[in-house]
């Protein structure tokens, strides 16, 4: 993989105004326990389903995709990112290619077979065809406006 990020399988990345912030934290032994990185996947209390539920609840725009927003690894994921980027809203993403189990969990959660999958304000929106369609008819703008004003 040309991609050098080697964080845990369910690591996320955060894209805002073209800048990406990784959610992974360096392993620094001097850090107080409170500030230690918590890998959700290694936490046995949390199932993958919980992680997905939390993802879509905590992020106004959540996208599960192939690759990441900077380097999508599929044309459909790339299209969805390009459409969403038009609106300059914070977007949280997870790369399902890095974790087949997460992929299954997302599919089971949304009852949707393909990727990308986009959630806005906790609501499942659909895949790239739907996001493009909503972009073209103005529905996406309304949807994002409604969420960002909260």
């Amino acid at each position: 993989m040309e991609h050098s990020r080697t964080t845990a399988s369910a690591s996320g990345s955060f894209l805002q105004y073209g800048l990406r912030f990784s959610t992974s934290v360096p392993n620094d032994p001097d850090t107080h326990d409170d500030f230690k990185p918590t890998n959700k996947l290694e936490n046995s209390d949390l199932t993958l389903k919980d992680i997905v539920e939390q993802d879509v609840k905590d992020n106004h725009v959540m996208i599960y995709m192939k690759g990441d927003p900077e380097q999508p690894r599929c044309g459909f994921s790339s299209l969805a990112v390009r459409v969403l980027s038009e609106y300059r809203v914070p977007m949280h993403s997870r790369n399902i290619l890095e974790d087949p189990e997460l992929k299954k969990a997302v599919q089971a959660f949304s009852m949707w077979p393909t990727f990308p999958q986009i959630f806005i304000n906790g609501e499942f929106i659909g895949g790239s065809d739907i996001i493009l369609n909503m972009h073209q008819n103005g529905e996406l703008k309304e949807k994002l406006k409604a969420t960002s004003s909260e």
């Binding site: 459909f76 009852m111 949707w112 077979p113 393909t114 499942f124 929106i125 659909g126 895949g127 790239s128 065809d129 739907i130 369609n133 909503m134």
Partner: peptide
């Protein structure tokens, strides 16, 4: 639209196992 796509996906549930990309334009 979401439900329409779900109907199409559902109708193709069997085929989807071998289809990697389905674009419902």
């Amino acid at each position: 639209l979401l439900d329409r796509h779900r109907m199409v996906n559902g109708a193709l549930a069997e085929e989807m196992k071998d289809i990697h990309a389905l674009s419902i334009t």
